[in-house]
């Protein structure tokens, strides 16, 4: 089997309020773990942008990863109505200037606490849709109905649903049938032969490799793909090819 060139769409670094025993927080440690697990590239966000302040964390991200061409910046974003974050036109310029490859949102009550309905975030999502910038949202952040409405109202938006679990097929399959722009990040998708079944029903192009590091195990994440009972071509698509295609289509 050819070696898989993993490209992680779901990792972060930086200080966190809660750090489990055995885990890590620094960029150096993330790079060391990536090397150990054979992960060649990563879309990465800064945990300070999630847990402290979006603009501060995004700025810290750009400074810290500048020396590492295999790390691609993901900005944590939200709508502009309070003035905490730029309006979509200005944000678009900033995304272009900083070569941002994806935008991530944390709208849940326990994180940034806002609705992603059209009346609040419609303009932000319109811009991302037009520019083909992938939007990463965790299943711990959005409800199934919110996800449905997001995909319905923005059919061209590329959505990567991250931080899923193995109990979701009864809702997930219907959305994958309806919305071709919806993709699933794999780290939490641990169901028995779950990856095989997605490939059979919807195609390997709907799955995007991610680890969830430094909270979740990178070893577990790569093993799910290594041992999946799918072709090597499908594994390569999931490991990196699909994500390369998505970020290659960004129009900024």
């Amino acid at each position: 089997m050819e070696p898989l060139n993993f490209f992680d769409c779901n990792c972060s670094f930086g200080m966190r309020g809660v750090k489990y025993p055995g885990s890590f927080s620094t960029l150096d440690e993330l790079i060391k773990k990536m090397d150990n697990y054979g992960i060649k590239k990563a879309l990465v966000y800064h945990s300070m942008a999630r847990e402290y302040d979006m603009k501060t964390g995004n700025k810290m991200l750009m400074g810290e990863i500048a020396a590492y061409p295999f790390l691609y910046p993901v900005w944590v974003a939200m709508h502009h109505h309070t003035g905490e974050f730029p309006a979509p036109a200005l944000l678009k310029e900033q995304l272009r200037e900083n070569n941002i490859k994806a935008v991530r949102i944390f709208p849940s009550v326990s994180d940034h606490g806002y609705s992603i309905s059209g009346w609040n975030c419609g303009e932000l999502f319109d811009m991302l849709e037009k520019c083909k910038i992938p939007l990463i949202a965790g299943l711990d952040q959005v409800t199934w109905d919110e996800l449905h409405n997001l995909c319905l109202n923005h059919p061209g938006l590329i959505v990567i649903l991250s931080d899923v679990n193995y109990r979701i097929n009864r809702n997930l399959y219907a959305l994958l049938e309806k919305f071709p722009g919806l993709h699933v990040e794999t780290s939490g998708y641990k169901g028995f032969d779950g990856i095989l079944e997605i490939c059979k029903r919807f195609g390997a192009h709907r799955l995007i490799f991610g680890t969830g590091m430094p909270v979740l195990s990178g070893a577990a994440a790569i093993s799910l793909i290594k041992y999946a009972r799918i072709s090597n071509k499908e594994k390569q698509m999931i490991a990196s090819g699909n994500l390369e295609n998505l970020i290659g289509g960004i129009k900024l």
Partner: peptide
């Protein structure tokens, strides 16, 4: 925990520990 989860991810995190 098969057949809840795939056996691979727990196997991998021990083997690569």
């Amino acid at each position: 925990d098969m057949p809840f989860y795939d056996g691979s991810f727990n196997l991998g995190r021990i083997a690569l520990a």
